[in-house]
Design a protein around this nucleic acid. Sequence first.
DNA 1: AAATCTCTTTTCCTATCGGAAAAATATGCT
DNA 2: AGCATATTTTTCCGATAGGAAAAGAGATTT
Lengths: 221, 221
Amino acid sequence: MDTSPPAPTDADPGIVAPDQPQAEESQRIAFGRHLKKLRQDRGLTLAECSKLTGLAISTLSKAERGLMALTYDRLSQIAAGLQIDMNALFGDEGERFQPDSLAIARRGEFQLQETPNYAYEILFPEIWGKAMTPMTGLVRARSRMAFKELIRHEGQEFVYVLAGQLTLHCEGRDPITLATGESAYFDSGMGHVYTTAGEDDARILVVCFGQNLPESQPQDP
Amino acid sequence: MDTSPPAPTDADPGIVAPDQPQAEESQRIAFGRHLKKLRQDRGLTLAECSKLTGLAISTLSKAERGLMALTYDRLSQIAAGLQIDMNALFGDEGERFQPDSLAIARRGEFQLQETPNYAYEILFPEIWGKAMTPMTGLVRARSRMAFKELIRHEGQEFVYVLAGQLTLHCEGRDPITLATGESAYFDSGMGHVYTTAGEDDARILVVCFGQNLPESQPQDP
DNA sequence: AAATCTCTTTTCCTATCGGAAAAATATGCT
DNA sequence: AGCATATTTTTCCGATAGGAAAAGAGATTT
């Protein structure tokens, strides 16, 4: 007989990948549904989508039902045709900012969040799927800095001083003082805190990126 | 004879995708380099990476050099093995904002861009890989709006009125007037233009997201 | 310098992707 | 209902992904 045991050679099963057998398929199916939604959200038929992406209708059909796993080349064709970048292709497309959305923030329209040293409001809490989270804040005069209070969250942060004088404390760095009209851009993964050196409260505008906080719990910028 | 002309049937070349012939390959090569970097940044050899991901060494080798286009299944295996999610797999991991980065914008530090109706400066042009692009601008008093000048670019935009009065013109909508301290958040894929209704120039702060303009050509917000 | 070890690339071959066209299913029209 | 059109699914097959094993290409040691 010629039924020798299939000796594994390339990757020996010592540490092994978290390799589920049919989990692969179910993930592919989920992704297929995702692709379908992407297409339908744009009101496209398979034929139209085929023209935009250059893939065959049959390929799209099979991919959407998880019957096949598209290659990188095809995936990037889809991304190009649908005008989204690869990141977004896999991202929670459903959570995406609505095309043609527009929202206006009038003054004092939103809920003020109060903390000992800050008062701030998230500007468009009702819009879900925003890529950026803008907020306005007030840093109280003579606010003391407590090192244990360092804020730290995934992403990037931009702060602009609307009025007064702001002191930016960043982990492992000397404090930086910003005058009115000045701004800073930094990795918000670094611990950071705002205080003010001036005699008056400082008013700031903060825009965060990278943390999905659509409706998250009260949290300092 | 049986040499009928190869009638295109599935996708007729009427609108057609922006389908470059060998652009596909170069993108794949770039992605391959990206994969290699991901692996090497973790100090992994092909063999170790193979164990983690479950892919054959040869497959990884070929993929890293752009000799083959991995399928969705394999890509997700890599993502799982390397403990990053699919988004990040394609994200500009290499081009990413440096962890622990911090940049300060003092007043008048950057190059002013002048257009008939605007003057603006991009705040941190030197930092590459920022997720957001903040800029400050000046909208000239009595600026007239030319419909042909509608700005349109991928992504989302946040505008905050620092001083004066801003009028936001959005495609297919009535103009919206924002007073000092008010702001708007919108899909910048919609055509949009800023003017001012007031007698004085309006000063604004704009933060864009979603367009990769690391060092792009002068362009209005 | 040959031998050994480690890491990467090539080769070969089968399983699968992916396109064209036909079949099936859904939707509308008179 | 019956026909016509639009959309999706199936089928078939050539092109390609991807695994196993062998062949390079460096290092390091003896």
